[in-house]
Design a protein around this nucleic acid. Structure first.
Length: 640
DNA sequence: CAGCAGGGGGCGT
DNA sequence: CGCCCCCTGCTGA
């Protein structure tokens, strides 16, 4: 186009418009910089720059990197980050849609800022952003809000990083070390290395920014990104950018590659997770003794992280609005817990390993979920949620309060779920909390949770609307297991009842322990009080497995979805155990976060008095009893 | 090397 | 004019 090019007199700059030349002259040549930052002495003639700068003070929106926990204050930076750091990754992260870490409301005060910011972004980006935003909010709200605030004040972005540590690199590289490194330092308290201005900004930020967005939102990103990828294209107003070679390539390749990569990564992650977990558990215990405080924090962190992640996924696709609803609930619950956590920093420092483990799990889970399609994600999400929650629940305290809610919620959800995606979403949300809160409930309502999950899946998937109603599959499984296990139990009607809940999953192949664990927690079961299970086991571990187990038992319904979800779940949480498959580690590692030394002492079967030196064996044995009982029970009932 | 922030240019409104 | 994006410079790890 032969447009008349205008040239700058001072330099050889050419612009298509006089306008630009003028601007150019003003910016480059002219000195007058009318715009001065109220927070610092920064001055500029360029409004855009000025705005950008101010934003830094007001809300350091952190653009979360989907691949890792990295949060950038500027989109461009995020892009740079992704480009340099995750260039190999499939994720074509859409910076534009990346979720900001706004925070909900709350105690802060800067809520408004954040919100406004967020809204802005959201709008600009697109619908998806909404999700992101919501997600972010939720996450933050969930546990970070409080944390963020406190942390934020102490040090800016560092907080953000803490939560995720290694996740990011999975695709890039497994060497979590790298990612860890990044995080750790940050976590500690890295006061961001900024320049003079920056420093000032920080001050300002602290004051103004309370919004604190950092914290744990990152996880969300991951999922978001996935979605983002899709959305990205759309969102990006300017196609040109995306089309650019770099991203384009990535995008295209992404789909397939990402999956594979993720899968692979997953494995590695899982393994790591496993190890980490163990370590973590040990550490945790020790720490507990030493410093309960920290522990709380940790838990919170973990839970938050997990929750966030899990929540994010599902919500994105399906339910943003609903999510919001859920959020409050969760927030309320979690907030209290996290209050004290303010000092995440400390925790982070001390327990990097733990965090990592968590993260790793998340990743693995994510990966599995992400890869496939939305449907999977949903499933995974739901599953994840469940799992994650449990982890966080470690503490009995949480569970207790939560249970109530979950009870009511869960059942309702199921029924409703069916209607449509939206509904599903809502359900999910509801479910999540419920699950999260208490696994016990689940056990009781087993069906409910599962149903909800399945429903979600089916809905999303669209294809399969099977009716979950069918329990047959579950029963079948159980029966099979029973057969196998039907060992000596016989007896124990009482125990049997108790078990009903747990048996379902345990029967499976591995991780009998998990099943057992579950039962105990399951006090709900009307039938009977959980006495038998190993006391020590359940104590803390809410366990993710339980969920699955429950689910599977409940519904065999959509096998596909189910299996998928289970699979993913397993990979994530149990995965470790399952993956290896074997018991060796299972007992402690996988599900139970119990360190076990205590338990080890001697395992005597309450049913038959047999003693088992190994916890694993003992569990297995117990499972058998339980399973049998359960099975028998059902049969009897059914007949009646 | 990675992250952050600013500068500067292109494009759309 | 505003928004977005790319590039560059500086700093800390």
């Amino acid at each position: 186009m032969a447009v008349s090019w205008v040239g700058c007199e001072s330099c050889n700059y050419l612009a298509a418009n006089q306008h630009e030349v003028t601007r150019h002259a003003r910016q480059v040549h002219n000195g007058p910089k009318p715009l001065s930052c109220p927070y610092c002495d920064y001055k500029t003639a360029d409004r855009s720059n000025f705005k950008k700068h101010v934003e830094l003070h007001l809300n350091p929106r952190q653009f979360l990197c989907p691949l890792c926990k990295y949060a950038a204050s500027k989109k461009c930076n995020l892009q740079y980050h992704i480009k340099s750091r995750h260039s190999g990754c499939n994720v074509s992260v859409d910076v534009s849609k990346v979720k900001l870490r706004v925070k909900k409301p709350g105690p802060d005060g800067a809520e408004e800022n954040a919100d406004s910011r967020a809204s802005k972004l959201d709008n600009s980006s697109s619908i998806e952003e909404d999700f992101d935003m919501d997600d972010g909010d939720e996450h933050e709200a969930v546990d970070s809000s409080p944390i963020n605030l406190s942390i934020r004040k102490s040090s800016r972005p560092s907080v953000a990083q803490p939560s995720q540590s290694e996740t990011p690199d999975k695709a890039q590289k497994k060497s979590s070390a790298t990612s860890e490194k990044e995080k750790l330092p940050k976590l500690k308290d890295k006061v961001e290395p900024e320049k003079k201005v920056t420093t000032r900004q920080k001050k300002a930020e602290k004051v103004n920014e309370n919004p604190a967005e950092n914290t744990t939102v990152k996880e969300t990103q991951t999922e978001t990104i996935t979605a983002a990828v899709n959305t990205d294209t759309k969102v990006k107003r300017r196609v040109k950018k995306l089309p650019a070679e770099k991203q384009t390539v990535q995008d295209q390749a992404e789909v397939p590659q990402s999956q594979k990569d993720q899968m692979e990564t997953e494995k590695s992650d899982q393994q790591k997770s496993k190890e980490e977990r163990i370590v973590r558990q040990k550490v945790t215990k020790e720490e507990e003794k030493l410093r309960p405080e920290k522990e709380k924090e940790q838990q919170k962190n973990e839970s938050s992280g997990k929750e966030n992640k899990s929540l994010n996924k599902p919500r994105k696709y399906g339910s943003r609005k609903s999510e919001k609803i859920t959020e409050p609930v969760e927030e309320a619950q979690q907030k209290p817990e996290s209050h004290e956590k303010n000092q995440k920093e400390k925790v982070v420092k001390e327990k990097p390993s733990k965090r990592k483990s968590v993260e790793a799990l998340d990743l693995s889970q994510k990966c599995s979920s992400e890869t496939p399609s939305k449907a999977r994600r949903l499933k995974a999400t739901s599953a994840e949620k469940v799992q994650s929650k449990p982890a966080s629940e470690d503490k009995p305290n949480d569970a207790t309060p939560i249970q109530q809610k979950s009870n009511g919620t869960t059942p309702v959800k199921q029924k409703k779920t069916r209607s449509s995606n939206k509904k599903a979403t809502g359900l999910r949300q509801a479910v999540d909390p419920a699950k999260d809160k208490t696994r016990s409930v689940n056990s009781l309502t087993t069906e409910a949770p599962e149903a909800s999950v399945q429903l979600d899946n089916s809905k999303q998937t669209t294809n399969s609307e099977h009716q979950p109603t069918e329990n047959s599959p579950a029963q079948k499984k159980t029966s099979t297991d029973d057969t196998v296990s039907a060992v000596s139990e016989k007896t124990l009607d009482k125990p049997s009842k108790k078990m009903d809940v747990s048996p379902s999953c345990s029967s499976g192949e591995d991780t009998p322990s998990s099943a057992e664990d579950r039962p105990a927690p399951t006090f709900l079961k009307p039938t009977s009080p959980p006495s038998l299970v190993l006391p020590s086991q359940r104590i803390k571990p809410a366990d993710p497995e339980d969920d699955e187990g429950i689910h599977s038992s409940h519904e065999g319904g959509s096998d596909i979805s189910d299996s998928a979800s289970e699979g993913s779940d397993d990979s994530g949480l149990n995965g470790n155990g399952a993956g290896s498959g074997k018991m060796a580690n299972d007992p402690e590692t996988p599900t139970d976060e119990i360190p076990t030394p205590t338990e080890l002492k001697s395992h005597m079967c309450i049913f038959c008095d047999r003693t088992f030196p190994l916890e694993v064996e003992y569990r297995r044995h117990l499972n058998r009893h339980l399973v049998n009982v359960y099975y028998m029970d059902n049969t009897a009932k059914g007949q009646k």
